[in-house]
Amino acid sequence: MKTLLPEGWPRPSGYSNGIMAEGRMVFVAGQIGWIFDAQTGDMVFEAEDFLGQLRQTLENTLAVLTEAGAGPEHITRMTWYVTDREEYLANLSGMGAIWRELMGKNYPAMACVAVSGLMEPKARVEIETTAVLPHA
Rank of each mutant, 00 (worst) to 15 (best):
I19M: 14
W80M: 04
P10S: 00
L102K: 03
I32Q: 02
G14Q: 04
R100E: 00
T66D: 14
G71H: 08
V28A: 05
Q31K: 12
F45Q: 03
Y81D: 04
A38P: 06
W34F: 09
L92K: 15
N17K: 09
M78F: 06
A90G: 12
V44Q: 09
L92Y: 00
M78L: 10
G14L: 06
I98C: 07
Q53I: 05
F36N: 03
E22K: 14
E48S: 15
L102D: 05
G52D: 08
F45Y: 14
L54N: 04
Y81W: 08
M43R: 03
S93L: 10
S16D: 01
A68D: 06
E48N: 13
F27T: 15
Q53M: 10
Y88H: 10
T79M: 12
V28C: 05
A38H: 05
A21R: 15
N60Y: 08
T79P: 04
Y88R: 11
M43I: 02
G23W: 04
L51N: 12
Y15S: 12
D42A: 03
V64L: 06
M20G: 12
M95N: 02
L51Q: 07
P72Y: 07
G23V: 09
Q39V: 00
A47D: 14
L51E: 07
A47C: 14
E86H: 11
R11N: 14
G71N: 13
E67Q: 15
R11W: 07
G41K: 03
V82M: 05
L54E: 08
F27L: 15
W34G: 01
E46T: 10
S16C: 06
N91Q: 11
G23R: 04
G30R: 06
L51I: 07
L89H: 11
A70F: 02
D84G: 04
L58K: 04
M78R: 11
Y107H: 09
D49S: 02
R85E: 07
A90W: 00
F27D: 15
Q39L: 05
V44F: 01
W80V: 08
T66C: 13
D37S: 09
P108Q: 04
F45V: 01
E87R: 09
A29H: 14
Y81Q: 12
A21H: 14
E46C: 13
F45M: 08
T57K: 07
V26C: 14
A63H: 13
M95W: 00
N60G: 12
A68C: 10
Y15E: 11
Q31R: 10
A97N: 10
I32R: 03
R55H: 04
D49R: 01
E67F: 00
T66Q: 14
Q56G: 08
V44I: 13
M78S: 03
V44A: 06
M25W: 10
A38F: 01
A29F: 11
M20Q: 12
D84C: 12
L58N: 09
A90D: 12
A21P: 06
P12S: 02
W34R: 10
E46H: 15
R100Q: 12
Y88V: 08
Y88P: 01
E46Y: 00
T61M: 06
S16K: 05
M78N: 01
V64W: 02
A21S: 14
Q39D: 11
M43V: 01
A97H: 11
A29E: 15
Q31F: 01
L51V: 08
M78D: 01
M103A: 13
T57D: 11
E59H: 01
A29D: 15
E22H: 14
